[in-house]
């Protein structure tokens, strides 16, 4: 599949890298298919921390995502079984990838991540959904720059 992206140019991607969001994402309900790309880990010098979701249908829409537990060990959002079941068959919790959408403003030190609405992906069915969790402890706008910097220094 050929995907046009404002950010990444033209990408040739295997169909099995495409994640389907049956409901879209809040604010982007008409966009259903996204390419999941592992980000350049020069950023954190660690694999699996930084990811991108590029819309298949709209070249201009891409999200940066973070694997939050990699740098915030206490982050453990409660995702209901109904939500998990809605993404199709799975064998164990390890079949799910949970990532959080980041906002990267002009001033990168103000970079933030949405802890309240994780993106959950069933890696077997490649279906995803952005879930808004009830737990009010988790902020929609959690500043994250310092935590990411620390991660890089530890390595």
């Amino acid at each position: 599949m050929i995907i046009n992206s404002t950010r990444f140019g033209t990408i040739e991607a295997d169909d099995d890298k495409i994640i389907t969001f049956d409901e879209g994402l809040p604010g982007f309900s008409s966009l259903r298919e996204f390419l999941l790309i592992e980000g350049d880990y020069a950023l954190t010098r660690r694999e699996g921390v930084f990811w991108w979701l590029q819309s298949v249908e709209d070249a201009e829409v891409a999200f940066a995502l973070l694997n939050v537990p990699a740098f915030m060990s206490g982050y453990n959002p409660n995702i209901s079984n109904e939500t998990l079941n809605g993404l199709g068959d799975y064998e164990c919790a390890g079949d799910f990838l949970t990532l959080n959408i980041a906002v990267i403003p002009g001033d990168i030190t103000r970079m933030r991540v949405n802890l309240r609405a994780p993106v959950v992906i069933n890696s077997l069915t490649r279906k995803g959904r952005q879930v808004i969790i009830q737990d009010g402890r988790y902020e929609v706008r959690h500043l994250v720059f310092d935590e990411l910097r620390k991660l890089r220094q530890v390595v």
Partner: peptide, 27 residues
Amino acid sequence: IYRKELYEIIKRENREAAKFRADIDKL
């Protein structure tokens, strides 16, 4: 099913997220 205010906040945050501008290589 969500309280509308919260849903609107998430929507707005997603729209912000889709228009990242910074040079992330600075991280």
